[in-house]
Simulated assay, not measured.
Amino acid sequence: MTQKSELSEEAMKLLKKLENKPAAEIMNSEALRVVRAAWPEAFHVSSPKPLKVGIHKDMESEGLIPPHIISTALNFFTTLERYLEAVKPGAARINLSGQTAGRVRLREAVDAEIKLYRQSEAHTRGRTRVVINRIKLLSVKKAS
């Protein structure tokens, strides 16, 4: 597994800066940047894969990053639209080294779809939503 000495110099500086901050003051992107530096195989923002259930325990057991930073990063990463779109029934979940570690269950995929819908709901209020097969269309709300 990864050793603390293997973190990049930039990640070590950022981690040192974040370790002294209260959890409420840590920016999501800062926390995720540190986590990505520690486990690059598991945290691909451009093409995320569902993470192993309980991966936070594995991360904490390695002792690289304080639990409050791990929590902030995971909460941010797992609510990204791309991540939620990857959570499909039967999709492979991955561990910290990017290896398959289980499969997404139907209920988990349904929960991800609900989260996606709720995230988009605020942006689509007042617009007409039309779904044709799997294509979602929104009307454009013209300014008066």
Rank of each mutant, 00 (worst) to 15 (best):
M1L: 10
T2Q: 08
T2G: 01
T2I: 15
K4P: 00
E6M: 02
S8K: 02
E9F: 03
A11D: 07
M12H: 05
M12F: 07
K13R: 14
L14V: 01
L14S: 00
L15A: 05
K16P: 01
K17T: 08
E19I: 06
E19T: 04
E19N: 08
E19K: 09
N20C: 10
N20F: 11
P22Y: 10
P22M: 06
P22K: 09
P22E: 01
A24G: 01
E25R: 10
I26Y: 02
N28L: 04
S29P: 00
E30Y: 07
A31S: 04
L32D: 01
V34A: 05
R36I: 11
R36Q: 15
A38S: 08
H44I: 07
S47H: 14
S47T: 13
P50Y: 02
K52C: 06
G54L: 05
I55C: 02
I55W: 00
K57H: 11
M59G: 01
M59N: 00
E62I: 02
E62K: 10
L64F: 04
L64Y: 03
I65M: 06
P66D: 07
P66M: 01
P66R: 06
P67R: 01
L74M: 06
N75M: 04
F76V: 03
F76H: 12
T78Y: 03
L80N: 09
E85I: 07
A86G: 05
V87I: 00
V87N: 05
P89Y: 00
G90A: 11
A91I: 05
I94D: 04
L96E: 07
Q99H: 09
T100Y: 08
T100D: 10
R103P: 03
R103H: 14
R105Y: 15
R105A: 12
R105P: 05
R107L: 12
A112E: 08
A112L: 07
E113Q: 14
I114A: 12
K115G: 07
Y117E: 12
Y117K: 13
R118G: 09
R118W: 11
Q119T: 14
Q119Y: 03
S120M: 15
S120E: 15
S120P: 10
E121C: 10
A122T: 15
H123E: 15
T124D: 15
R125I: 14
R127H: 12
R129I: 15
V131D: 13
I132R: 12
L138D: 09
S139R: 09
S139H: 03
V140T: 15
A143K: 12
A143R: 12
S144R: 15
